[in-house]
């Protein structure tokens, strides 16, 4: 019963969501809205659980004086400050906005900028012609880079025609193949879970 109840519940709720996607029934739409509100409530509980885990892990780190204890203290202080600012002063308050505008946004921008260096480093390792596949990758990669650069088009006016064909025929065919097979896979994974065939998320294995 402990195992069957969540499976039956998931199956019913999943079926309602699927029906709402394909059919235009007012009654189903109303139930779906209600269920989506429940999702928000359940998510709030899981957020509390996750926040407790975060607080326990970092408190343990501080009390054990492990490396990075200062960072953990900083994390806990900002976490409490953001929560207090949001709950008591409101999400429009200057204190709450400060956390996003002065800490999160600049840090996120800096992090995003780092991706450029990581792409360069990954490309350096990938673009080594150690076999036929890697050589093909190297050649097409270099061609695309040349075609995308303004000077490349000036030097080789025919290059964009070739690279556009590579992108719109070869690349797109590959991408669509992956997307279609992934979509079918997603339907099967979801159906397995909703029908109770796949119960791994409730523990391990089917039984």
């Amino acid at each position: 019963m402990k195992r069957e109840a969540p499976i039956v519940l998931a199956g019913i709720v999943g079926l309602i969501q699927i029906l709402e996607h394909f059919f235009d029934f007012e009654a189903i739409a109303a139930v779906t809205v209600e269920l989506q509100n429940w999702v928000i409530i359940v998510s709030a509980f899981s957020l509390a659980l996750a926040a407790i885990n975060l607080a326990i892990n970092h408190t343990q780190k501080i009390s054990a004086k492990k490396a990075g204890a200062f960072d953990s203290a900083l994390l806990l202080i900002t976490m409490v400050f953001t929560a207090v600012a949001g709950i008591f002063w409101g999400m429009e308050s200057s204190g709450f906005k400060f956390v996003f505008n002065a800490i999160i946004d600049p840090a996120a921008s800096a992090f995003y900028a780092m991706a450029a260096f990581h792409v360069a480093s990954a490309a350096y390792r990938a673009f080594r012609a150690h076999n036929a596949h890697a050589a093909a990758l190297l050649i097409t990669g270099v061609m695309l880079m040349i075609a995308k650069a303004p000077i490349g088009e000036a030097w080789f006016p025919w290059m964009p025609t070739i690279t556009n064909w590579i992108m719109s025929v070869l690349n797109l065919a590959g991408v669509r193949g992956i997307m279609i097979s992934s979509a079918i896979g997603m339907i099967c994974v979801s159906a397995r879970i909703l029908l109770g065939i796949d119960r791994s998320h409730l523990g391990l294995g089917r039984d």
């Binding site: 992956i178 079918i184 896979g185 099967c188 994974v189 065939i197 791994s200």
Partner: peptide, 24 residues
């Protein structure tokens, strides 16, 4: 893509899940 989605079946060697990969 789908290699990730069939991972559960591949790892567990569960009959039903492997069968669903065939259906897929």
């Amino acid at each position: 893509g789908e290699e990730l989605l069939t991972a559960g079946a591949y790892i567990s060697k569960d009959t039903a899940r492997l069968g669903s990969v065939h259906g897929q």
